[in-house]
């Protein structure tokens, strides 16, 4: 499984515009990186590049010698602004599907429901959830199917103060278990993290 993420001399171009170039980052098991930068600097594009959804202009994304396709298919979670949740389906239907899709077990799904306190929300349609509840449902995927690398795009923004703290503990637990986190943030991450400013 992924125990190292290395970005070497990475450049990404979107819509004809060079977002960043010469970007380097090495993360080992148990480490986190906080991506900062102004709006439009390319934080989301960098996360999508690591996930293999965006082509690189130059440079490489390495997963410690693993086959990149295989590492991405089984080893990473991406939680972004677009959460992939269907408004007309219930929270339970969505969580069950995504857990099965990302390789989770019924037991780990139960753990996710407990950790993110979703049990009272499960029978509601996703459209009835508040922004923060909806984000908690999206974040539940991280726990429902354990995967080492978490790519998080402003994971804290819709959460209230209490849940920010709780999610900080969840991230700390993931890092303590040997996981890796790359998070795009505007506020400081609640866990120790390497800082990486994009488009500086």
């Amino acid at each position: 499984m992924i125990s190292r993420l290395s970005l070497e001399n990475l450049a990404v171009r979107r819509g004809g515009r060079l977002l960043f170039e010469g970007l380097n980052l090495t993360l080992d098991s148990g480490q986190a990186a906080a991506l900062t930068g102004r709006n439009g600097a390319g934080k989301t594009s960098l996360l999508r590049t690591i996930a293999g959804l965006v082509q690189t202009e130059a440079g490489t994304v390495g997963f410690g010698g693993l086959d990149p396709t295989e590492a991405r298919a089984r080893g990473l979670h991406l939680v972004g602004h677009l959460d992939g949740l269907k408004p007309a389906r219930t929270a339970r239907e969505e969580l069950t599907f995504w857990s099965a899709w990302t390789g989770g077990s019924p037991e780990s799904t139960q753990t996710a429901i407990k950790t993110l306190e979703l049990s009272t929300l499960l029978d509601l349609e996703v459209r009835r959830l508040s922004a923060g509840q909806r984000r908690r449902l999206a974040l539940a995927r991280l726990i429902a199917a354990p995967r080492p690398l978490w790519l998080l795009d402003e994971p804290l923004s819709p959460l209230d103060a209490g849940w920010r703290e709780r999610f900080g503990q969840i991230m700390a637990g993931h890092l303590a278990g040997g996981g890796l986190i790359v998070a795009a943030v505007h506020d400081p991450l609640p866990v120790p993290a390497k800082a990486l400013e994009i488009g500086a």
Binding site: A51, A73, G80, L82, D83, G84, L85, K86, W101, T102
Partner: peptide, 16 residues
């Protein structure tokens, strides 16, 4: 289109 707009297609691609 539905899965493309709401980001589900991104997550569906990240699978074995």
């Amino acid at each position: 289109e539905r899965d493309y707009e709401d980001g589900a297609l991104d997550l569906i691609v990240l699978s074995p």
